[in-house]
Amino acid sequence: MKKCGYLLTLAILLVSLAETVRARDMAVTVFAGQSTRNVWEDFFLSPASLDFADSRIAACALSYTFIRIPDRYVSFELEGQIVRHWGIQSHWEANLPVVIRYHGLPLRDRIRSSVAFGVGPSWSSDTPPLEVETRDDSSPVLFHWFMELTAGPARAPWMLSVRLHHRSTGFGLMADKGGLDTLVGGIRWDF
């Protein structure tokens, strides 16, 4: 009889978990782009002055939406990223940002879109040489943040993505020097 109780409890927990992980609570974003020698502000204040380096990235990010506030069009996600660098840099990077995403952009009934900002720790398998070149030094462990704009068909599970991918000292909290800015594009698929 105890085994039936345990099995029933387990079944209820699994059903509850399945109800908790609703449709579109998970997403995969695949993106690639090119690094610059600029600081992030240049992307907005002087985009014509961007100095792209011979350094590229390709990445895969898996995110989980853990809070939704539908009447405010806001969600919170945890995202894990695996990034491969090549060109001037040849190393791996892993990032774990917490993300706030706003879904209430104009024309949301015709175009599915969002803007997002994420911040969290960043780990590099080596001290990134382009960061040393452009910022005089760096460290394998820094902060990571990104800004993202997504847009796609209203009823589709996918959206195109444009991101500013940034590694940073966190105002000196993680290191004295370092950081890099990369402009990337990709696709986000919700499931």
Rank of each mutant, 00 (worst) to 15 (best):
G33H: 06
G33F: 03
S35P: 01
N38G: 13
N38M: 15
V39K: 15
E41H: 13
P47C: 13
P47R: 14
A48C: 15
S49I: 13
S49F: 14
F52Q: 07
D54E: 11
R56G: 08
A58Q: 04
A59G: 11
A59Q: 03
C60T: 09
A61S: 12
S63G: 03
Y64P: 02
T65S: 08
R68N: 09
I69M: 07
I69Q: 09
I69K: 11
R72W: 14
R72S: 10
V74A: 10
F76R: 04
L78C: 02
L78S: 10
G80Q: 10
I82D: 04
I82K: 04
H85C: 01
I88D: 12
I88G: 09
I88A: 05
H91K: 04
H91M: 07
W92R: 12
A94C: 10
N95S: 03
V98R: 01
V99F: 00
I100H: 00
H103L: 04
P106N: 11
P106V: 07
L107F: 08
L107V: 06
R108I: 01
R108G: 04
R110G: 06
I111W: 00
V115N: 06
G118E: 00
G118A: 03
V119M: 15
G120P: 02
S122N: 14
S124D: 07
S125Q: 12
S125H: 08
D126F: 12
T127A: 06
